[in-house]
């Protein structure tokens, strides 16, 4: 159960939305809200292990994702079908505390959320 679920559906560096979503999640944690992050569609690339953001003069987004637990965000989910459709699996991800959700579990997560923040 999570009061707020943040869905992040965009790739890490193609637009600002991935970072904006992450900032919103961190703000929610700072305000002691019960928040979960769901990576879906192109958003699964945010957790991809082999990012080289410095080559495009960006800060590594995957590192911020890994730091979420430090800020009290325990619930990070990845939509499993989005992952497999892109030829990725759990081993492709930089996060080890992440939970993969099938379609049914994803529906259940969103159905029980009091609020959904979409990015």
């Amino acid at each position: 159960m999570s009061a707020i679920v943040c869905i992040s559906r965009h790739s890490p560096y193609g637009s600002s939305l991935a970072r904006d979503a992450l900032d919103a999640v961190l703000a929610a944690a700072a305000f002691e809200q019960d928040i979960a992050l769901l990576l879906m569609d192109e958003g699964v690339w945010q957790a991809y292990r082999h990012q080289q953001a410095s080559a495009i003069e960006q800060k590594e987004l995957g590192k911020n994702l890994s730091a979420l637990a430090v800020f009290g965000v325990e619930k990070v989910y990845v939509h499993e079908r989005s992952l497999t459709r892109r030829g990725l699996d759990r081993d492709s991800l930089s996060l080890n505390n992440v939970q993969l959700l099938n379609d049914e579990a994803t529906r259940a997560l969103l159905a029980q959320a009091r609020q959904v923040l979409s990015f």
Binding site: I4, A24, A28, Q33, L117
Partner: peptide, 12 residues
């Protein structure tokens, strides 16, 4: 700041 988004989200 983003706190305004979270506060609104938590109370609406």
């Amino acid at each position: 700041g983003l706190g305004q988004l979270i506060e609104a989200c938590a109370t609406c």
